[in-house]
């Protein structure tokens, strides 16, 4: 099942069973969504529950907050995470804070969905990975989905939660086809071990997970066995699963598309170093984006982010330096 079809299925299922669920965003209704995630829902549930909005990101999230305060369960779509920067007041100052500031009196059962990451030559204002900006804010849950199973179940879980959730998707995943099956008791707070291994723990999420899996296939041929962990929640992070794996492998690599500085690699490797310093056989390795805005030119664009080849090479040379 295509990733976007899995998201659509989750939205359809939620709307069918709970009349409080509404969708709002730019082009989500009549047009069917710019990435076709909401396709068909406008016809099925009508314009009152699948709401086309003006290009006003701050008030898309703001009105969703008002709806949630009254007991609806809005799912707001922001066309891309880049545009969510216009909604940072509502996301950071409002959505994340209202429950705490009200001493627990205000409930915000709402989801803000958005894709992020490098697609193909969309240039600097359409290509960012900004998960660390949301994940640094207490009061938000930040989920992300790397395949159709986590897309379907993660989104459904987010809609069921009485707390606000930022739900991150990746632009390149929408048209990717993944095996799909419904899973009993899917828990987004539990990271998924996609592949077991004994030499290195590689932590990643969203689209990079697939680049990591490819690189790890090649590394296996070099005799390096990788355990691959896919984070489904970026706030909170399931450190237990990471620690459990690193205790076994004694080596940590974190792969992500955002620029290296102040990203998830910093957080995860710092925590692992704090907790498991004497277990480690090598300093943690971060493989991440370059410290540049994403360029338009395809060659430069690919230079700016990790690729399976780069992941393979960097892990190989780092491994060699540290006794693998």
């Amino acid at each position: 099942m295509l990733y976007r079809e899995a998201l659509n299925l989750a939205l359809d299922h939620a709307m069918e069973h709970d009349p409080r669920v509404v969708i709002l965003g730019e082009d989500v209704g009549f047009y069917g969504g710019n990435y076709k995630v909401t396709e068909g829902l406008y016809v099925k549930y009508g314009p009152k529950r699948v709401i086309d909005t003006p290009i006003a990101e701050n008030s898309i999230v703001g009105t969703a907050i008002g709806m949630a305060m009254m007991g609806l369960r809005p799912v707001a779509e922001i066309m891309t995470a880049n545009f969510a920067m216009l909604a940072m007041d509502q996301i950071v100052n409002q959505m994340a804070k209202l429950r705490y500031m009200s001493g627990g009196k205000v409930f915000l059962p709402m989801v803000v969905r958005m894709p992020q990451g490098v697609a193909k030559q969309l240039a600097a204002q359409h290509s960012q990975s900004l998960e660390h900006m949301f994940a640094s804010v207490p009061g938000l849950y930040v989920f992300c989905a790397s395949d159709s199973i986590s897309a379907y179940h993660g989104l459904l879980y987010a809609i069921r939660l009485d707390d606000p959730v930022i739900f991150l998707e990746h632009v390149l995943l929408y048209s990717m086809d993944f095996p799909f099956q419904k899973v009993e008791n899917f828990d987004p707070f539990k990271a998924r071990v996609l592949k077991e291994g004994k030499d290195i723990t590689v932590v990643s999420y969203l689209k990079m997970v697939h680049d990591v899996l490819k690189a790890c296939e090649w590394l296996e041929k070099e005799g390096i066995s990788c355990e691959v962990i896919d984070l489904v929640s970026l706030r909170p992070i399931d450190f237990e699963t990471i620690y459990h794996s690193v205790k076994k492998t004694k080596r940590l690599v974190v792969v992500y598309e955002a620029p290296k500085t102040c990203g998830f690699g910093a957080e995860i490797s710092a925590r692992v170093s704090e907790e498991l310093f004497y277990f480690l056989d090598a300093p943690p390795l971060r493989i991440a984006g370059e410290e540049v805005p994403i360029p338009y030119n395809r060659k430069l664009e690919l230079m700016a982010i990790p690729t399976p080849e780069k992941i393979y090479q960097q892990i190989l040379s780092w491994g060699k330096r540290h006794g693998l």
Partner: peptide
């Protein structure tokens, strides 16, 4: 946050009307 609660009011009114 100045003006931030205006869309909340719009969303609340939308919800009341829908219900």
């Amino acid at each position: 946050i100045v003006a931030a609660h205006l869309p909340h009011a719009v969303g609340a009114a939308y919800a009341r009307k829908l219900m």
